[in-house]
């Protein structure tokens, strides 16, 4: 059967995440499928879930409306969260308009770079890799503090990526470019765990 990856399809750039994970599975010659995840019942049937970029206030509301909050909190697989996704997996957010899931021991600040005119491409330092990673930041959040359970993996001027167990949270959007190193890292870690 292989690995089943669900991309949370409530709002945001779902199709880009599906394509990126399909390519990452191919790159690792892994069998599996990547599906849009729209129903709470399908959450426990996944090995990994991607929470895409989008508006965190909107996705947060729709998680509650669709009764996905508890199944996501008790999910045993790995979560790959980018941008709005990072805001949602945090234990604390600087904004009461979002109710985070508390899946990772990180505190996150929303829209930390400013407005869309401050959104940019910038190279990121990836722990354990000499090659910088192309970072695409779009009204991006940053990690303000990292608790003992989480580990920093990406830095720019701020902490912009962290891992904890099977989970990975990123401020930026690797799914928008062709560099699959972070997807591959996430999948390797998932298989080994």
């Amino acid at each position: 059967m292989g690995i089943r990856i669900g991309v949370l399809a409530l709002q945001g750039n779902v199709s880009e995440h599906i394509r990126a994970f399909e390519r990452a599975l191919d790159a690792l010659s892994l069998k599996g499928e990547v599906i849009p995840l729209r129903n709470a019942e399908d959450i426990p049937r996944c090995d990994a879930i991607a929470i895409p970029g989008g508006e965190s206030t909107t996705i947060s509301r729709l998680i509650s409306k669709n009764r996905m909050r508890e199944p996501l909190k008790s999910f045993h697989g790995g979560i790959f969260a980018t941008c709005a996704g990072m805001v949602l997996v945090a234990s604390e957010v600087d904004d009461s308009r979002v109710e985070p899931l508390g899946l990772m021991d990180i505190t996150v600040a929303r829209n930390a770079f400013g407005r869309q005119r401050d959104s940019c491409e910038m190279p990121i330092v990836l722990e354990g890799d000499r090659e910088p990673f192309p970072g695409y930041f779009i009204r991006a959040p940053v990690v303000e503090s990292v608790g003992p359970a989480a580990t920093v993996i990406c830095r720019a001027d701020h902490v912009v990526g962290a891992v904890q167990g099977k989970h990975m949270a990123l401020s930026f959007h690797p799914e928008l470019g062709g560099d699959l190193r972070l997807h591959i890292r996430f999948l390797r870690n998932l298989i080994e765990a």
């Binding site: 945001g12 750039n13 199709s15 989008g54 508006e55 959104s119 491409e121 695409y136 720019a156 928008l176």
Partner: peptide, 25 residues
């Protein structure tokens, strides 16, 4: 971060912003 390494308002950043609105009102 060196300022010359930052690229603002590229086509990818503009289209990327638009794609974050998908499925939304």
């Amino acid at each position: 971060m060196k300022l010359e390494e930052l690229r603002f308002g590229t086509e990818l950043i503009k289209r990327g912003f638009a794609s974050m609105q998908k499925g939304g009102v």
